[in-house]
Write a protein that binds this DNA or RNA. Structure first.
Lengths: 330, 330
DNA sequence: TCTCAGCATACAATCGATTACATTCGTCTT
DNA sequence: AAGACGAATGTAATCGATTGTATGCTGAGA
């Protein structure tokens, strides 16, 4: 099919070793020879086989990325950050969508191992708990995004979830909402425990009413419907992420409670759409792109040196918009 | 590092050929031998190298997917469909985000060629025009999503964009909006020409006022601002996609024109968030997941037989919500 | 008992690159 | 002028699997 290095060597009247050296530039090759080789390469349209190179060099320049759900803008941004960081380093990304299915996550671990990826980024909610042992002695560097393990210390890149929870709750308190509710993500969701701790830094004991949900828009809507039977406005509402906040606001419209007059809503993530909503959504912004890029950076550090203890915590930032500011409603 | 087939063979006291056959099951192997081999495989945790296999078999079981922007829910859904269809066939997906940059698209074509992917899915707006020749004689099957080429016939999977444009425009006419505007995508955007034709099937000549934009929320917002200086309500507005519609609706709020009373808005795609908006967005639904899965299916068909002429056109469907129905506004 | 068929397995080539080691040849030193 | 050095290049091993061909063994038939 496509020409091989032997074809180039034959056409140039040199050995494959010389072609290889002329292209890699690692060793000295006579200028005239290099010119000749490059001319033939261009003429034949030769493109080296990454497969053959990988076999010989025992590295693939490919990273595996396992995410929960690529259609969630949080993960999409994260993947973008990882992909662009990888591109800058001449590497590629094998994408795996776990769909929250532990079975599928295990399957993908096998697939990625067999493809001999140079590193693994796991931004998957269900996986990390179930497969923590496997991840801990994975044959290549692994970095978790937005998860941590107390028992099995695996390098991680996370946002400061506790501070995020605290910022959200404190903001709603400052706005004067007399009660507080929270729509939490699924129990296995990565940031969840720390965000709850952060909320509880501000709101103690039984003054906080919570509902758990699936972490998407539909889940947020249903959770808000359940919540509406347990609480009366006005109150502040902290949501697991922006998607659940969007679902909750849809439910609130149907119920007839006004945002922000009756209910002050705060989301988490700051996905791009949040500022285009009506009302625009107050949220705890995470830099998803930086999380993804930071994960790639962590893998590189782990590969080049023997660093194994990485725990990068990215800052979060409260972005105040109309959904939580009383007296600004239309 | 990880055990190789030789390690397994040595431990089992057989040759590597026998191990290979025991695992592939293609040739008869004595049951006792197979048991022994499988036991050793399990004990050593042997996982075959896809790299070595690919080199020998000259196939990688990996597909390349080039998209314009993974953070656009349209492409995210499409990638999901492709990824899951690939998974069902025991294949994987190398993801490439072109970011609308032709340079980067060319770069990725090289990367994917070097990785010897078994097929290529191109759902990238800018690429297809600029690299049509390269795609036409790409060494492995290529399928375009939501693009077609008149001159170089490359297999394609698309939605019925013309019908989509027609449905959107006709609906707005039926709703009694006396004037019509359209926010179009970038000039190179895939579906754009046919959607315009569809709109013009319904609205002739200078009765249609158009603005082009970048195809994202910000672009939609700015386009609506420009448009507002050229038209007065009431009018119907057809948008390039749901993201631009969201941006347009944000602009309309700031301008103070009501949706749907002053302006009836129709988007394109039906991304998940559209039904959660306020007002919920009327849109021409495309089955993005099916487009992605269909692209994989097309690659399989092209690989197994010598089919080279594929032109799958998926149906679109008008989903009517409150953003375009007069007299239902809150 | 000898031969032959056929099953199970081994041997070795192969895929396409990289790279350690060997070789050639010209030039400089003494 | 002989030897040494080093630049340029070639030879061949290697990575880890698959697979065509060869071989050995067992049992059945004559």
């Amino acid at each position: 099919m496509s020409p091989t290095i032997s074809d180039v060597a034959a056409a140039a009247g040199v050995s494959t070793a010389t072609v290889s050296r002329a292209l890699s530039g690692s060793t000295r090759v006579a200028p005239a020879t290099r010119q000749k080789v490059l001319a033939i390469v261009a003429e034949l349209g030769y493109q080296p086989s990454a497969i053959a190179r990988s076999l010989r060099q025992q590295t693939t320049t490919v990273f595996g990325v396992i995410v929960t759900d690529i259609t969630n803008p949080f993960y999409a941004e994260l993947v973008l950050g990882a992909e662009e960081a990888a591109l800058d380093l001449g590497r590629s990304v094998l994408l795996c969508n776990a769909a929250g299915d532990p079975e599928r996550e295990g399957l993908y671990l096998d697939v990625l191992t067999e493809h001999r990826v140079d590193g693994l980024i796991v931004a998957s909610e269900a996986l990390s708990n179930r497969y923590r042992e496997r991840l801990a002695d994975f044959p290549v560097p692994v970095v978790l995004v937005n998860t941590k393990h107390e028992d099995a210390p695996i390098p991680s890149v996370t946002s400061d979830n506790r501070r995020g929870g605290r910022l959200a709750a404190q903001h709603l308190v400052d706005q004067g909402y007399p009660a507080m509710a929270a729509i939490l993500g699924p129990t296995y969701a990565n940031g969840r425990p720390l965000r709850v701790v952060g909320i509880r830094d501000v709101v103690s004991g039984d003054r906080l009413i919570t509902e758990a949900c699936a972490g998407d828009m539909e889940g947020g809507k249903k959770a808000m419907e359940r919540l509406s039977r347990r609480i009366s406005p006005p109150f502040g509402l902290v949501c697991h992420n922006d998607l659940t906040a969007i679902g909750a606001m849809a439910a609130l419209r149907e119920i007839g409670w006004s945002v922000p007059d009756d209910v002050g809503v705060v989301g988490f993530d700051d996905i791009p759409i949040s500022e285009y909503l009506d009302p625009p959504l107050t949220t705890v912004a995470q830099d998803m792109y930086a999380l993804g890029a930071g994960a790639v950076d962590a893998l590189i550090r782990m590969s080049s040196s023997e660093v194994t203890e990485i725990e990068d915590i990215h800052e979060v930032r409260l972005v105040v918009r109309a959904s939580s500011v009383r007296g600004e409603s239309g």
